[in-house]
């Protein structure tokens, strides 16, 4: 994707997005609701024409030759796009035939995918009775019927219960291990962290950061130490004990029993802190070292949390 712009009325949904995914890589497109993730996917899958810029799949321009692009992609949208009155096998069959694959090939590929996505037992049941997780798996299987060179997964776990979400993660990890090129969008930082080797953070239609999950986390520095004590009157003693052990300013909360400070993460910090506080006669309730999450990264990059954005939209 090169300088892609897409406007809807007055809103610039995509405001010059550049994005390049190498073959065989799993990229995560991360951003809050309304950031432009789905619009990006819709441009790349020929569902929307960009107003400016070019997008190519396998070197083919999506605007110039959408038909050739459609032969090379698989799309799993935000809704499990399955025909719920047909069986799983029939769903795979009708999509395969719309790819103009020979019938025998469709049948063989359907068997293979049903097996792989753990749907073999349910293959000849009508999809209506399927769970959310089964529908999503079938949806992905349908996208893979013609062995696409790029698979687009638009929020593949939105609306799934935690167990199905974990199952879906396993499926995506397997795809990645097989060398399928995947572009997945998500608003769950945890999900991008776990699945994507490279994360592209987008907000208000622009790419605001790009890097591996570790690189992004490093941007906001190391770990933080949190300590909770029992009695507020020990506040000062606790702070003076903690200061030499930490890498920066020790901040206390309003209750005067909670403290946090940046530390150079390493072994032995926690026992050292507990010993020092104990020696100083401070009654420690809890000590925790928190490594930065992608939520922290997002907060640093955009100045707000993902949750706040969701509430606002």
């Amino acid at each position: 994707m090169d300088g892609i712009v897409k406007t809807f009325g007055d809103t610039r949904a995509l405001d010059g997005v550049d994005l390049a995914v190498p073959r065989g890589a799993v990229y995560g497109l991360l951003g809050p609701n309304g950031a432009g993730k789905t619009t990006s996917v819709r441009v790349l899958t020929t569902l929307l024409r960009p107003d400016a810029g070019t997008a190519r799949i396998d070197g083919i321009d999506v605007a110039a030759d959408p038909h050739a692009v459609r032969q090379r992609i698989g799309l799993t949208g935000q809704y499990a796009a399955v025909e719920e009155r047909l069986t799983a096998r029939e769903n795979l069959g009708f999509v395969g035939r719309l790819f103009h694959l020979p019938r025998a090939r469709v049948a063989a590929r359907a068997d293979e995918l049903l097996e792989r996505f753990d749907l073999a037992d349910a293959a000849d049941r009508v999809v209506k009775g399927f769970s959310g997780g089964m529908r999503r798996r079938l949806d992905i299987a349908m996208s893979l019927i013609a062995e696409p060179s790029v698979l687009f997964l638009d929020e593949p776990t939105t609306g799934l219960d935690p167990r199905s979400r974990l199952g879906m993660w396993d499926v995506i990890e397997e795809l990645a291990a097989d060398g399928t090129t995947v572009l997945l969008t998500t608003q769950y930082l945890e999900e991008a962290d776990r699945l994507a080797e490279q994360i592209v953070v987008i907000d208000h239609g622009r790419v605001i950061a790009e890097g591996s999950p570790d690189e992004l986390k490093q941007r906001i520095g190391g770990a933080r130490l949190s300590v909770r004590i029992a009695r507020p009157e020990n506040q000062e003693r606790a702070m003076s004990t903690l200061t030499p052990l930490c890498a920066g300013e020790v901040v206390s909360d309003d209750a005067r029993t909670g403290f946090s400070a940046p530390i150079i993460a390493g072994d032995g910090v926690v026992p050292g802190v507990i010993r020092a506080l104990d020696d100083a006669g401070v009654d420690v309730l809890d000590v925790e070292v928190r490594r930065p999450s992608l939520d922290d990264v997002f907060l640093v990059l955009t100045g707000r949390t993902t949750d706040a954005e969701e509430d606002a939209s």
Binding site: L47, H67, R70, L75, F99, H100
Partner: peptide, 10 residues
């Protein structure tokens, strides 16, 4: 969302 799927097919 079936129409989206169909529109992404060749």
């Amino acid at each position: 969302g079936l129409v989206d799927r169909l529109r992404s097919l060749p």
